[in-house]
């Protein structure tokens, strides 16, 4: 691990200001992803701004039936909250399907959103990766790509976003609240937070330099069933091969792209009366495999069909 300097932020705006003014600064919240990557010299911050004790852990009424979850609320705290359990079961199921209990006790809501991909080539510093080193190339495209993305990929990157939580947030139409280095706040729709790779896979979110996530807002739950289903190689504590979040009429897919994939086409097809299988096929029509991950197209299609059908029972 490379040496770094450290400060504990006094308040969110001060943290954002310090991050914008200090070259090579990184926010540290739970640390479960950042420290892992620092040990591998994939993340090499010159300065670490500890935001873990900022007073942003509250889960509170946001008016009009909405709920605000502070960015420092741990994944465990959110999944255990009675209001979240009552009104947003898709979020609870997604959170509890991710990582291990020890990690969820440390990992935060804000950190979960900005965690980095688990692509094996991103982790292997002996291999080229356009995310780690822009212009180096993508070893996953011709390599072992069983876990790689099938939607929204580019010639530069076929990595997936690893969050389960964010997939549920997409189906719930959540929004992300931030504070900028000048102290101003703004709200970003969850589907506008993460970016598809294009030619610049190293730019992962629409956050500006120094901009800090302070919370997420869940609008009032939509009418209808909610569920999250994840298919993986072992029953617990494993990354997914495919996942589907459903909240009423809204559907989002996980493990398929570099962002939570809101299935707008399938939603429109269902609204027009298409049967679940047809709607799933419409969504996955542009899907593209790179060999090892070809099976994920059919797997995702079937999983999506099953989730929609179960929701109608």
């Amino acid at each position: 691990m490379k040496p770094f300097t450290y400060e504990r932020a006094a308040d969110p705006a001060a943290a954002a200001k310090a991050a914008a003014e200090t070259p090579g600064a990184r926010f540290l919240a739970g640390g479960t992803n950042l420290l892992d990557l620092m040990k591998l010299d994939i993340e090499t911050p010159a300065h670490v701004i500890d935001v873990g004790r900022l007073p942003l852990a509250r889960i509170e009424d946001a008016g009009d039936g909405a709920l605000r979850i502070g960015a420092m609320a741990t994944n465990s705290a959110v999944a255990a909250d009675p209001r979240v359990r009552r009104s947003y079961p898709v979020l609870v199921e997604a959170l509890l399907s991710g990582a291990s209990p020890q990690l969820r006790n440390k990992a935060t809501t804000g950190g979960n959103l900005v965690q980095r991909t688990r692509c094996a080539y991103f982790y292997d510093t002996a291999k080229p990766c356009n995310k780690r080193q822009p212009g180096a190339g993508c070893a996953a495209i011709g390599g072992l790509n069983r876990m790689s993305a099938i939607l929204g990929t580019s010639d530069a990157c076929i990595a997936t976003h690893p969050s389960d939580m964010a997939v549920a947030l997409s189906a719930l139409d959540a929004s992300v609240e931030t504070v900028a280095p000048d102290g101003s706040g703004r709200t970003i729709g969850i589907d506008d937070l993460h970016r598809l790779p294009g030619e610049t896979p190293q730019i992962e979110t629409s956050l500006a330099t120094g901009e800090l996530i302070t919370g997420i807002v869940l609008p009032a739950p939509p009418p209808g069933a909610q569920s999250y289903r994840k298919v993986r190689d072992r029953a617990s504590y494993a990354s997914g091969l495919a996942s589907v979040a459903m909240a009423g009429d809204r559907i989002a897919l996980g493990c398929v792209a570099l962002k939570p994939w809101r299935a707008h086409k399938a939603e429109a097809a269902l609204k027009a009366g298409a049967p679940p299988r047809v709607a799933a096929e419409v969504e996955l029509a542009p899907a593209h495999g790179n060999g090892g991950n070809n099976f994920k197209i059919n797997l995702t299609c079937r999983l999506m069909t099953a989730v929609i059908q179960d929701g109608r029972r």
């Binding site: 450290y6 540290l28 640390g31 479960t32 020890q102 440390k106």
Partner: peptide, 19 residues
């Protein structure tokens, strides 16, 4: 490496002492 911090179990390998 699991320990209890303020009564809650965490992985002590993925946490800095300074935190």
């Amino acid at each position: 490496c699991t320990v209890l911090v303020n009564g809650v179990r965490i992985n002590s390998c993925l946490s800095l002492a300074v935190m």
